[in-house]
Design a protein around this nucleic acid. Sequence first.
DNA 1: TGCATTTGACCAAG
DNA 2: CTTGGTCAAATGCA
Length: 294
Amino acid sequence: MTMEEKLLINELEQGRELAKLLMSNLKQTSSIESSKTLISEIIRIYQNAIFMLSLNEDDKNILKRSPEFNDKNSKTVFKKRKTSAEKKTEKVRVVVGEGQEKGLIDDGFSWRKYGQKDIHGFINPRGYFRCTHRFTQNCLAVKQVQKSDKDPSIFEVKYVGNHTCNNTPPKTKTPNLSVSMFEEGNRAHVTEQSEDIKPTKTEEVTISLDDLEEKKNIFRTFSFSNHEIENVGGWKSNILSENLMGNLSPATSGSGITAEIVSAPALVENSETADSYFSSLDNIIDFGQDWLWS
DNA sequence: TGCATTTGACCAAG
DNA sequence: CTTGGTCAAATGCA
């Protein structure tokens, strides 16, 4: 049995167990939040399974190259070149769409492009941006923007580091986009971040399903910032379903670790309703392997 | 003129 | 050697 097949079976088994838990939950009239979480987890698992089945050989090779994928308990996180910023930051993968160009997504901060690279395995180059106030205010925030190969209207944005400049945009009442947050590493909770990251507002809803925690595989962690899903390769996703067209700030979710998705004008009205909840899930599922951004 | 962008070179890690 | 990330000189633009 190949590794992919084992992983796939593992995913499906988890889905089954979660479905059982959900049934038990419903019988015991447990909290709606708990049930929602289970449902989202089940959907995520099946999404993973479908995704794995849909991979072509090249995609699988990409996965195999990822240490996070190969070793679920490994402390070997994908290592890039050390930078001063990396020591202090988490990385978040963001997907932004709406046809904005050159990564000039208005996230409330001012960015200055300092580089562009063709990335192996991607058609479009990746742009590197740092905060305009890097030198004036020693703001180490950095972001990387890459246009999706599949959908040119989608930009994947990775934020690295907190803004320490005074340029912090005014906090909107809630993030306004369907958001998918990915966190590098294979951590169990958003709060388990590097020492310099102190989330001030995580809105974490960690489910107390201990046996479930034991079963975590390489795909995921189990922590929710509203609705959170981790995806292939150790990325963690986070759905914050809000109005789509507003101003999303990377700093508004606390630690400066924020991701944003504006994939399509599919409105997500209110995260409190089941319908919108599933709408936001649909948004994520639609991304498919575009999430594969190491 | 000052600031932002472009782009090839450079460097570190694997 | 390959790759990703950064640097910095050249260039563009208001």
